[in-house]
Nucleic acid binder design. Structure first.
Lengths: 221, 221
DNA sequence: TCTTAGATTTATCTTGAGTCAACCTTGGAC
DNA sequence: GTCCAAGGTTGACTCAAGATAAATCTAAGA
């Protein structure tokens, strides 16, 4: 069993590897991510290696083991499902949910997570638009995110257009909706089934959800 | 801030005072309820007195302070609301929920508790039929429990009949459904809106929920 | 008055997580 | 090649919570 401190270390390490698309995370990074001194990080990490959560390469950094990655993914899953629950079901504003989820994610059992997932209708994105890892620990690659899942105010870069219909592609070209372009979401109305966006400095226009679903984007940070 | 250990001590002490209808709880009881040695209980309780959770009367026992009782009630509230949520919303079987709630009750914030309460429709009883304390820390006195809220297999003692309709009172008298009598719930069908019960050794009969609601009972333990 | 069950004390342990400061390594800059 | 700064490691130590065991105490009833 992992303590919640260990769970936090794992989650943070995973997020860095996901973020920087690498496997090893440097000790300095670990220490700063968790707001502890380098010495603390080193000793903590050694214990975690002893327990099989990760592999420690002295002076180089740490890499999650399969077991570690699995639990880390699970933490991410719990966190994001809980955030979704807090917003969708309990009606929280999405500015307040992070802290709450941070606490609950260590107390919620696997069983409850699964029931919650089911209850929420197996959502694929949390309220912030981050992908929710599957039960098996698979996370949607960032580039396979679709424009439809983007929230108000988000800034994304077009990755690719899935639709093959020439009419649609023509329309997309007209609007400069092309891979590599930067896009800002001006509005996203679930009820209206449409989003409005602006490509670069061009004038804004709207897209139905069915169309937006076919546009893969890359989140900018 | 109370640690989860302190929260458990408080909750357990409250439950004993509620159960035995007293204010002071003996140290031996505290120790056994929490499965620790007497020495541990004594020292723990001293710390808790230092922090204002309770008053400690050496060689006599402990009594919750206002502050302690408030938090203890809150723990009970969280626990029972969580159990209700797990059964009503997530579809758990009520045999599995206690352990889950035991974990979550320490991690859930006041804000979430309130939203949950609202979401569940401010339930008054948990799935086991125990009353849920109000936000202000008021718990339904056991005697103000109604027959309608009783579950299958429960054994209760009639406390009083609220209905003034003579027809109903006549019926009640015929069935020996009178204050002081012992009753066993033979079935309780939410969908059918009725419960079947047996008074003493007489033959069983059924009551609609509307009628059952008017009968106050005392839980037997 | 004596006994004894239950309560208290004291000395000690364990564990988890952290600090501090001295001391290593190593990869460039020169 | 040498050297140095940045970053990593070490070891000695702290701290807080909880817990135990065992000796000792107290008070209520036979």
């Amino acid at each position: 069993m992992a303590s919640s401190t260990v769970e936090n270390y794992l989650k943070q390490i995973l997020m860095v590897t996901l973020d920087e698309n690498c496997t090893k995370v440097t000790m300095g990074k670990v220490a700063s991510e968790l707001s502890v001194t380098p010495g603390t990080a080193t000793s903590m990490v050694k214990n975690m290696e002893r327990d099989g959560w990760l592999k420690y390469y002295p002076r180089q950094g740490v890499a999650l083991t399969r077991k570690g990655r699995k639990l880390a993914m699970n933490m991410l899953r719990r966190h994001r499902l809980l955030e979704t629950f807090l917003v969708e079901t309990l009606g929280f504003d999405w500015s307040e949910i992070h802290v709450e989820a941070e606490e609950l994610e260590h107390a919620i059992s696997e069983k409850v997570v699964e029931k919650l997932d089911l209850f929420l209708g197996r959502p694929r994105y949390d309220p912030h638009g981050h992908p929710i890892p599957s039960k098996g620990g698979v996370i949607q690659r960032p580039s396979s995110r679709t424009l439809q899942s983007c929230k108000l105010g988000m800034k994304v870069k077009i990755d690719s257009i899935l639709d093959q219909e020439s009419d649609f592609l023509k329309f997309a070209r007209d609007k400069k909706l092309l891979p590599g372009k930067e896009v800002v979401i001006m509005s996203s109305e679930k009820v209206a089934d449409a989003i409005t966006l602006r490509v670069g400095r061009n004038s804004p226009f709207s897209l139905g959800f069915r169309s937006a679903e076919k546009i893969l984007v890359l989140e900018q940070h």
